[in-house]
C-alpha cells in the first residue's frame, strides 16, 4: 500500500485530519516527527496546517529549519510528492522549495470559511484527479495567507502554469493575482492556503447544493498523489 507521511511539528493542528484524509483516499498514513532525520521510507509527504512553533519569528520559519525538513527538501529534489497545507505552505516558501511568501491578510482579520477555488493546473502530483478550470469548495482558515512575490516571480509562475489554485469570489486575504496555491517547476511540490483535508468525508465537509456538509472536493487532492505514484 502507498505510504504517505504526515509531519507533526510542535503546534501542528491538522496533522490528524491530514492522516485521516490520506486513509480515506486509500493510502496508509505514517506519522513523521519534526525532530527526526527520518522519513521512514514514505512515498509522499504532507506538511500540515497549524501554528508550528507558535508562528514565532515568521509563520513556518522555524519549522523550515527543523531536522525533518532537511530530509523533506532532499526528498522533494528527488521528485517525491510534497504537499504543504496552510502553515505547511508557509514552511515550503521559508524552505525555498516554493517561491514567494505569505503575509498577514490585507484586511488584518483571521478568515474562516468555505472557499471557492478554481483548479488552474492539473499536471501536478496533487491535482491530476481534477479537470482544468474546475470549481471546487474547501475550507479556508488563516490570518497570514496573503501570497506575495515580486512581479518577475509572479510572471514566471503564471507563464509556466505553476499557479495551481486561484480564489474565486472575494479574495480572502489580498493575495497577488488571487493565488491560493502554487507548484514547483517539476510539479511534485504543491503548497496551498485552503485545507483540502477538511473536505474529505460526507457529513464533515462544506455545504453543497445537494446536502449540508457533503463537500468532499479535498479528497481528490490526496487521490491525485496516489494515482501519480501508481502511474510512476
Amino acid at each position: 500500500m502507498t505510504r504517505v507521511g504526515v509531519v507533526t511539528f510542535p503546534g501542528s493542528l491538522d496533522d490528524g485530519d491530514a492522516r485521516r484524509a490520506v486513509r480515506l483516499a486509500g493510502a496508509e498514513p505514517v506519522r513523521l516527527w519534526h525532530g527526526d532525520h527520518d522519513l521512514q521510507g514514505v512515498d509522499a509527504i504532507v506538511l500540515p496546517g497549524g501554528f508550528s512553533y507558535g508562528d514565532y519569528l515568521r509563520c513556518g520559519a522555524i519549522a523550515a529549519l527543523s531536522p525533518v525538513m532537511t530530509e523533506v527538501v532532499a526528498a522533494a529534489e528527488r521528485g517525491v510528492p510534497v504537499l504543504g497545507i496552510c502553515n505547511g505552505f508557509q514552511m515550503l516558501t521559508e524552505a525555498h522549495l516554493l517561491p514567494g511568501g505569505l503575509v498577514r491578510n490585507d484586511h488584518g482579520a483571521f478568515v474562516c470559511r468555505d472557499q471557492r477555488l478554481r483548479v488552474e493546473q492539473t499536471s501536478t502530483a496533487w491535482t491530476s484527479a481534477f479537470e482544468v478550470g474546475e470549481e471546487i469548495v474547501i475550507p479556508l482558515k488563516n490570518g497570514e495567507g496573503g501570497f506575495v512575490a515580486d512581479a518577475d516571480t509572479v510572471a514566471r509562475l503564471e507563464g509556466e502554469g505553476r499557479v495551481v489554485f486561484r480564489y474565486l469570489g472575494v479574495d480572502p486575504n489580498g493575495s497577488v493575482e488571487h493565488i491560493a496555491g502554487i507548484a514547483n517547476e517539476r510539479g511534485n511540490v504543491v503548497g496551498l492556503m485552503p485545507h483540502p483535508e477538511h473536505a474529505v468525508e460526507p457529513g464533515f465537509g462544506p455545504d453543497t447544493a445537494a446536502a449540508m456538509r457533503s463537500g468532499v472536493d479535498g479528497l481528490r487532492v490526496f487521490r491525485s498523489a496516489l494515482e501519480a505514484l501508481l502511474a510512476a
Binding site: 515568521r58 520559519a61 529549519l65 516558501t93 514567494g100 511568501g101 506575495v148
Partner: peptide, 8 residues
C-alpha cells in the same frame, strides 16, 4: 538568511 525573509 534567518532573521528576515528577504521575499517579504
Amino acid at each position: 538568511s534567518l532573521l528576515a525573509n528577504l521575499v517579504i
